[in-house]
Nucleic acid binder design. Structure first.
Length: 125
DNA sequence: GCAAACGTGGCT
DNA sequence: AGCCACGTTTGC
């Protein structure tokens, strides 16, 4: 089903007042602490069970965002060129697969989010 | 509760 | 390396 707001999108963006560049490296020191485990943590009925198991095991909590700020999802800076785009191109793969891919238009993808979280942490000593 | 979008794994 | 699919998080 197509929505009539495909080319409209949220006009709010980060231009509401004055987007500040938070180019801190606070999220550059997270060594991807996520394992695949047994691969069963992705099933619907088992996910809750697995998580409960892990909680009891002290592996992680149900709310990682509250426990580990570093795991918190990043947001668009609102100041880069892509962030300033207020309309989807409607032709990129993300736009075409938005229903399934659940990804923002490539033309609107924040440059900071485009980079990997450990972009400056790939080197291993 | 829903829609949008981020994060990551898998595939090519 | 890039794209796709899915899960999950986040804001309204």
């Amino acid at each position: 089903m197509l929505r009539p707001m495909t080319l409209l999108g949220p006009l709010a963006e980060g231009a509401s007042g004055g987007p500040r560049l938070s180019l801190d490296s606070e999220d550059a020191h997270v060594p991807r602490g996520h394992e695949k485990e047994s691969g069963t943590a992705s099933l619907s009925p088992l996910s809750g069970y697995i998580q409960a198991e892990h909680q009891q095991a002290g592996l992680f909590s149900l709310t990682p965002a509250l426990e580990d700020p570093q795991k918190k999802r990043r947001k668009k800076c609102g100041a880069c060129v892509p962030c300033l785009q207020k309309e989807n191109c409607g032709t990129c793969g993300n736009c075409l697969n938005r229903q399934t891919g659940k990804q923002i238009c490539k033309m609107r993808k924040c440059v900071q989010l485009t980079k990997r979280k450990n972009d400056s942490e790939v080197r291993v000593e």
